[in-house]
Nucleic acid binder design. Structure first.
Lengths: 359, 359
DNA sequence: CCCAATGATGAATCTGTAA
DNA sequence: GTTACAGATTCATCATTGG
């Protein structure tokens, strides 16, 4: 069985996978349900309601039910993969450990776990945890020591300013024009992935003309990226509405010439370094004193990177503003520490940390 | 059984854990071994040579042994944890999926997965994969819906320039002076973690005086960070050489003065002041008027600390919610009184009362 | 036409205490 | 156990509106 360049199948993922022949696919990208286990409604501080992912397809009775489901679709994916093929799966802490364990148990060989760092994640509105600002992808070969998987090392290095691509990728969410909208103007799919993410996945681990299978096709991000990058694809999706959106979307995609693929240039601005990092790095210690430029006034450094002047506490900027009775203050240039050459602005310490980060 | 501030136990992790009493520990930090490639004795860190495991079945056996080992130490950790306790585990793609699955199966409730982004990771020399530039930590409460875990949200926010802390942490590797050296001048431990990482873990999820347990103590990074931050600790480590290094290292650590350990507290922890107290204190009088932020709407203060708008009466929060037709409202920030500088939120009056209470 | 102010929104396991 | 209610809580980005 040979696949045309574009195949979209409407139907149940596992049933349809079973119809595909052994060893016919080069790369699988799967974005399965995450099995979020949400409580009641969640309100933002402005009392508006968060549009939760409460779709029926994300509901599972237990971890065991989720594991069984995972094993079923993933075993089929492994069967249809060529021996030199590979699999990508994306998930969050709700499901990624289950997925990774099943994957290893099925004989896949993990090559990397890759972190998608979101530049603009949804915050944690209630202040109960760390803002959940990333998702995890697993990249795995069909088996250990099997035929060689595809990895376009130089393309990745090129796309990363000639520095080896790392396992953490910083990319924005899929919003704005890119986000597919329904007739009502609302998002057509609750969890549409950014095409830039698929671009990097496909560019890194497949060749032009390869067949890429997405068993949870949704509104077709994998298909759009595959077509743009000159790959063939097979998408399986149960919901007819998503299929319709995907078809319309992919129809409009114009494939680009390989020479024009170097579009992912990354511009690096100076990384933000919180003052707390200076304390964590041990460049200043909790209890240490910092001084104003002329050394008359001082403040104490606290373990969390706040300063204290008497009862007054807050960030380096806030405390600096308060003791000067000014509306604002740049704490990095205002506060000084005692070095062997006398008082020096703490900005010097920030430069040190930045130099280390860049190294 | 009460623990002293510093307890280091030399012995097998699981055996020694079994001797600890139920519900006696506030926080566990575990950095377990993940040498999955080695068959046989998974606990031995001395890298004795074992033939590569190519066979799928052997691989499965190896995973099973690792899962059993993980379940054994983690179940004991769960037993010794207090009901409001929590667990941190760190790992890489080799083991973190196994660890996360076991953790969920044991009833732990995942709060976050946290990514340690290394600023200076080891490159991938052969150019065969993405540079493995991160490790994963899992932070989990003892159980779902159990007693409230500790999270110092405001301290974390402060440490991150007043923006809430995210699930990805950028920190350098442990190198240079910080890295413990053996008599031969080489690193004493193969996977020593940076103290900055432990600083953030401990500061975020424990309180001064808490008991922190590290069942894979190594050269004592957890102990050093715990002592510095005024926490007690219990470390278990099998290798006497590591224990010796840890003791010597921790001996030299100077704890931060208790006063300097104070971090930004949450508003939730401040004493509750009923609105009626404001009226009792005479800061507002029955019959006085309070206004919404822009001053268009007003309500009357009543003697019992309720508000009235026409027929509508109730608490400051309820009346605020009702006149805005919103599900909830913080009356302290919504309602304003007329001061000599124009409208000011009644929260100012609450601060006054609190200041007086503290005096 | 540009800039400022305002509003909307994204895979979210999202409160605590007292009666 | 449950219910009631006080009151604490958000970041980056893009679209829209108003001047």
């Amino acid at each position: 069985m040979a696949f045309g360049p574009e195949t979209i199948i409407q139907g149940d993922c596992i049933e349809e996978l079973k119809k595909l022949p052994d060893g016919s696919v080069d790369l699988v990208f799967a974005d399965p349900p995450y099995n979020l286990q949400l409580g009641g409604d969640l309100l933002r501080p402005d009392n508006s309601k968060v549009d939760a992912v409460d779709d029926h397809w994300d509901q599972f009775e237990s971890f065991k039910a989720y594991d069984d489901f995972t094993r079923a679709w993933m075993a089929e994916c492994r069967r249809v993969l060529k021996d030199d093929g590979a699999l990508w799966v994306i998930g969050s802490y709700h499901n990624i450990f289950r997925v990774g364990t099943v994957l290893q148990d099925l004989g896949f060989w993990v090559l990397n776990d890759v972190i998608w760092r979101k530049t603009n994640p949804m915050p944690n509105f209630k202040g109960t945890r760390f803002a959940n600002a990333h998702e995890t992808l697993i990249w795995a070969a069909k088996s250990r020591g099997g035929k060689r998987y595809t990895f376009n090392y130089d393309a990745m290095k090129m796309a990363n300013d000639e520095v080896q691509m790392r396992s953490d990728w910083t990319l924005p969410l899929c919003t704005g024009e890119e986000r597919i909208k329904g007739a009502d103007g609302h998002k057509a799919h609750p969890t549409q992935k950014p095409e830039a993410l698929l671009h990097r996945v496909i560019l890194s681990s497949s060749r032009p003309g390869d067949v890429i299978l997405d068993p949870f096709f949704g509104v077709g991000t994998t298909g759009a990226a595959a077509k743009r990058l000159g790959r063939r694809f097979i998408g399986i999706e149960r919901e007819s509405e998503y299929v319709a959106h995907a078809k319309e979307r992919i129809r409009k995609v114009v494939p680009i010439a390989p020479a024009d693929l170097e579009v992912m240039g990354s511009k690096k601005s100076e990384p933000r370094v919180p003052f707390g990092t200076i304390v964590e790095a041990g460049l200043l210690r909790p209890g240490d004193t910092v001084w104003c430029p002329k050394g008359q006034r001082s403040a104490k450094v606290r373990a969390d990177g706040s300063l204290a002047v008497g009862e007054m506490t807050g960030s380096i900027h806030k405390v600096g503003a308060m003791i000067q009775s000014q509306p604002a203050c740049n704490g990095w240039t205002y506060w000084h520490f005692k070095s062997d050459k006398g008082l020096a602005p703490i900005d010097v310490l920030r430069s040190k940390v930045r130099a280390e980060m860049a190294a």
